[in-house]
Design a protein around this nucleic acid. Structure first.
Lengths: 137, 137
DNA sequence: ATGCAAATGCGACTTATTCTCATTAAGACT
DNA sequence: AGTCTTAATGAGAATAAGTCGCATTTGCAT
């Protein structure tokens, strides 16, 4: 039986080895609805296999980012946080009180960005739009 | 003679002491057209007074941020970079090849952001819009 | 001029991440 | 199934950015 998840296939197709730690990390990411940081992923991984080291988490996140399986976000101040990259593009609103992340999209903002960059003579390679907010009462 | 710059007045009005290191750092910021990081400010400061310590740079940047004299930006990966806050609000386009920063504004994007946050039940406290681009040929 | 609290300098510490290197283990090839 | 090659791992040291503790200095109100 060759029951590889899409992420696992992505790893193999990149010519990388599908090791036990990678399987575990991929499983965690698939099950995560949130945006965990490396330490958080490390803790979740430790529950499945206590031998996994933090260095492996960092290394794996880097290769996953390179193969396009995950996206890395460096929100204000804190450590980098990750999420699967298979979903539609979206931006983030971070609750400054709780750290919770709300996702949103705005095609109109996207288009305005493109137009602005073009006007300045640039082609957009990447962008970050983060709103930091407080829940209205 | 009481020739205080606007920044110097801002420091005093906040009830803070106008010390030699602060004068130097403020002078550097006034003369900077770029967006230096703490290490860079430290180097420039050392040329005027070699006794200034890096810790003082960090501490001063923090108080300047709190008094509203400077803005702190944490661009992708790298260390925090600073700029004077006296100017009009603007966002940044970072040239991924050179690290150069181009400033721009878009009232329409600002307004869209506000509307999106409101719709999600949030009030925007801060925001970051950064475009990472490559010069078009 | 003087005293006191604020600010500084220095080094130790923390946090996030990367590196080194000896050891392990995928997966290709019998 | 056994072996080989090399990528990947684990453990801990190293690095980078920034903060902290504390003894000493210094603005500045008196």
């Amino acid at each position: 039986m060759n029951e590889l998840s899409r992420y696992e296939r992505q790893i193999k197709q990149a010519g990388l080895r599908l090791t036990a730690p990678r399987r575990i990390i991929l499983r965690i990411l698939e099950q995560s609805g949130d945006h965990p940081d490396a330490a958080e992923i490390f803790q979740r991984a430790a529950k499945m296999d206590a031998r996994i080291s933090l260095a492996t988490i960092y290394r794996t996140m880097k290769v996953l980012e390179e193969t396009g399986a995950v996206e890395r976000h460096a929100f204000q101040g804190g450590p980098a946080r990750f999420e699967q990259a298979d979903r539609e593009h979206h931006d983030h609103l971070i609750d400054i009180e709780t750290g919770a992340v709300v996702e949103f999209t705005s095609p109109r903002i996207e288009e305005l960005q493109r137009a602005i960059a073009e006007e300045l003579g640039y082609e957009i390679v990447d962008h970050r739009l983060e709103l930091y907010g407080r829940k209205m009462t």
